[in-house]
Write a protein that binds this DNA or RNA. Sequence first.
DNA 1: GTTCACAAATGAATCGATTCATTACAAAGG
DNA 2: CCTTTGTAATGAATCGATTCATTTGTGAAC
Lengths: 338, 338
Amino acid sequence: MPNVPGAKLKDVAALAGVSVGTVSNVLNRPEQVSPDKKSRVLAAIDQLGFVRNESARSLRSGSTRSLGMLVLDVRNPFFTDVALGAENVAEAHKHSLILANSAEDSGRELAYLDLFEQQRVQGVLITPFGQVLQRLETMRSRGIPSVLVDRLARNDQFCSVSVDDVAGGATALTHLLDAGSVRPAFVGGPFTLQQVEDRYQGAADAAARAGVSLQLFETPDLKFERGRQIGDLISNLQPAKRPDAVFAANDQLALGLLQSFAANELRVPEDIAIVGFDDIDFASQSSIPLSSISQPRHLIGERAAELLFDEIDNAEEHVHSQVVFTPELVARQSTRRH
Amino acid sequence: MPNVPGAKLKDVAALAGVSVGTVSNVLNRPEQVSPDKKSRVLAAIDQLGFVRNESARSLRSGSTRSLGMLVLDVRNPFFTDVALGAENVAEAHKHSLILANSAEDSGRELAYLDLFEQQRVQGVLITPFGQVLQRLETMRSRGIPSVLVDRLARNDQFCSVSVDDVAGGATALTHLLDAGSVRPAFVGGPFTLQQVEDRYQGAADAAARAGVSLQLFETPDLKFERGRQIGDLISNLQPAKRPDAVFAANDQLALGLLQSFAANELRVPEDIAIVGFDDIDFASQSSIPLSSISQPRHLIGERAAELLFDEIDNAEEHVHSQVVFTPELVARQSTRRH
DNA sequence: GTTCACAAATGAATCGATTCATTACAAAGG
DNA sequence: CCTTTGTAATGAATCGATTCATTTGTGAAC
């Protein structure tokens, strides 16, 4: 057996015949150690299989090299992509990212914030679900700043990175009109979700500007099943009353609509065009590739992490800023001009 | 401002007029503290906004309440589902799960194992990518056991939780034959992936037993794009030579095939049936719902975490075991009997 | 009133790495 | 030969919570 279970710094020092301070220097300021001792220490580390104890390290230094990230739903590819972007930046700063899932549950959300605080993470990236802004303020007063992700900070108390959903909604509807729609509809809800509200607002404005009315199908959620249900409802309308194009508040809904229309033998886009929102991978992968509004997921995570590091590193001079990306249309077959 | 930035246990003790030991007791063995002092301590904790320092805690106690989980690809819903299952169990044991992404990169894989070791996690759940078994042995010798996930441990050195891919392959092919196929094909690769090899083997055996030959389309990867490419190739074959059913090694490939067949105006399942593997959410959500072989993702994560805790809690009596789940067919429209 | 049993509370020692004031030593300058 | 300057190395003090051997306090039993 080449290595001993619990080798600690002291053991390394003993084996190498140097002081603990020197071993620590080899680890943290190698340039200050003579080559001779350095190599002896490294050999000892290797021989003992010494692994630094991160708990002791961060207890003494008072800081952990980690960020906490709390998202609404890890199963949603949108959030994993954002997280990957953030992780890249964290890695560049030699930090690690602890990813947690609030699963749209206020209790879990608070529990994870507690955990982050106990673990003394350097900062938090969060897509808030419940009423946590006050709590985040408190955390900042204790030295743990946070950045809001996929949510606009309205009061300048936080940095935030979000997407202009109003613009996205307008883009989507304009695209449908350009493709020849004269009876467009919006499918989505609940309107208590800011994103839904904004996307609808943008679409409604665009319709109004074009002098077209926008039919509304309000839904209690944004799930696939709901899309299929609304799709069946729409399919059963008389052709003259039926929308000739639908803007769905997200891709899940849109895919549900698509499946329903296929089952009801409506042709997409000839009988009815569809545009979704988010541009998830599967948008391009359905039998009829789905047009969608695409968000720069990776960039969102990167920018958020960068803002967070700015606040961590320069708490004094740091000024909160709101980054708002403009989402882009990706036109595919589901809206091909007739 | 109701609370002080860095309140520590000593401050709480001072404010409550008790010793540090008593505060610690309130936190860790409340039943040993008189109600009177207990309430004073709790009030002080509240007033100061005291938050336990996890680093100090685990330095002293020698153990962290956390598990590490290292998966091949966090973007793959299969792994997030497995992780959620594991997290449930971890939570029940009052542990937290640190999720990391090796992204099919040996370097990252090793780096994260280092990190886990530095953080002194109690154990590791891993879907190995590179040659890490030796490394995992070393980690166990230093007190950090691990369980293999979605990978069979062949040598009894580890616990493992996996799925019987051979049986799954046989189930898939049998289903196609039952649905009337006489010229089935297998699409997938590379065969260096054990899963692909096993799924093919199961299918080939089932075909042989039925006295039918199984055509093979080998691919260099399992991505959507590849499926579309092979789909185009198959669509251009003469009808008499064309397979009348395809078993794809995973759902991504299957969805690619489906999109290609739709674009080439082949009818599914009338002209060609399709069955995939994994039963990802989108399998049921494509325009033509896809039949697939479903794995108990959640259960895989739960069992793996349970085995890990068994080894953590009873290192002595623990006996390694291999849990192998049998995957199940979910028949949908893409294989409806003609 | 003394002794005993038991519960409650105490606080010094501890975990392991880091830090920094101090010491040791060598080379250069006078 | 002595002083100065600078580089290397040292090791005791420290971070904050936990633990456990010890002390204090209370009531019961005799």
